[in-house]
Design a binder for these strands. Sequence first.
DNA 1: TAGATTGTTAATCGATTAACAATC
DNA 2: TAGATTGTTAATCGATTAACAATC
Lengths: 212, 212
Amino acid sequence: MSKEISQAVIRRMPRYYRYLGELIDEGVERISSNELSARMKVTASQIRQDLNNFGGFGQQGYGYNVQYLYEEIGKIMGLNEQHNIIVIGAGNLGQAIANYVKFEKLGFVIIGLFDVNPKICGRKIRGNPILMLDEIESFMDGHKVDIAALTVPKSEADAVANRLVKLGIHAIWNFAHVDLELLDDNVVVENVHLSDSLMQLSYNIVKSKNDN
Amino acid sequence: MSKEISQAVIRRMPRYYRYLGELIDEGVERISSNELSARMKVTASQIRQDLNNFGGFGQQGYGYNVQYLYEEIGKIMGLNEQHNIIVIGAGNLGQAIANYVKFEKLGFVIIGLFDVNPKICGRKIRGNPILMLDEIESFMDGHKVDIAALTVPKSEADAVANRLVKLGIHAIWNFAHVDLELLDDNVVVENVHLSDSLMQLSYNIVKSKNDN
DNA sequence: TAGATTGTTAATCGATTAACAATC
DNA sequence: TAGATTGTTAATCGATTAACAATC
């Protein structure tokens, strides 16, 4: 068991990665925690603490090499390997995910889409035909699948998710608005609850009105 | 200025709301913080503390009335009023958002979609025709818009967002993978960074492999 | 070498959990 | 009334910030 790093830190890593990517694009070679702190509007102390959870990537008197730090964070987040994704539920959201080119640049490749609706079966999304969900078992036979993106109605989510788990899926990117109840709790789940996000926005709207 | 409630609490409220909705569907009339704690896998203490940020909704010896608490949380989150949304960028993701019926049940109503692509202009999404982005100024004249959902490429995000802010938009649901730099910092922004979410998932996959 | 900036320890702050008196 | 369970205060835990010695 590797030393536990808090999810608060993990949540910040992608943001560091993004800013470092921008710095590379700008041709910046090195940056101090202080300069980065000014850009990102977090404390320099937090940046140094966060990074030192994973190792010493900087150099006293110099700062951090942008390219090197970018690559190291990429490795930490697992971007050095390709992750194959299947999308379960090829409605609007599923298709949107499958169409999003950005993910592929990060090493996340969509290799299959599945749906129960025969009407959209066969339609191609960026080269991938939508398959019938019942083909999933045979599909899993011939393919390495790392992540299942779940964009099915909440009523179906548990059943479909557990069907996938039985087929050996170990990671679920869950867009259904439920907390999945899985048979195996070694499965990694990352939730994207859009209605929750919208409600938070709504709360902050009400608050900002009251504050003024 | 109303007493500040931490975003950690706000982030949990939609989840309470969801569980209470499920309890209503199950016909449960009252629930104690202890029972709810077992269902939601959080401490009863946290539930009571969280709720008491907003007021005393329970009753000693009884617990919480499910229906009442559900409605009160709804009000806290601003769901007692309708929120009109426009979607800026009518690509796959924008269309997915506009098609998502669930939002409407929570009081979030899509009243317009905009894009710069003339090819999709006029196409209807659940009754709303996609309009050209240049029609936004005249549209804002005749409509009350509470939230702009921003699903444009990151390169366009700042410019488009500030154009909206100038037109009086006070809340942005930002799907572009940037931290928006807005001219007015009274604008409320809620970010949905899907690549960040995917990277977190990826990190946890790597970790779970190392742990076993 | 002198200056800069990290890595890391210590101090502070905030959030979570525990405990219990108030009260339905 | 007795039992249950809240609302709230106090204790603990964890995360953030500050400080500074180590070192490039």
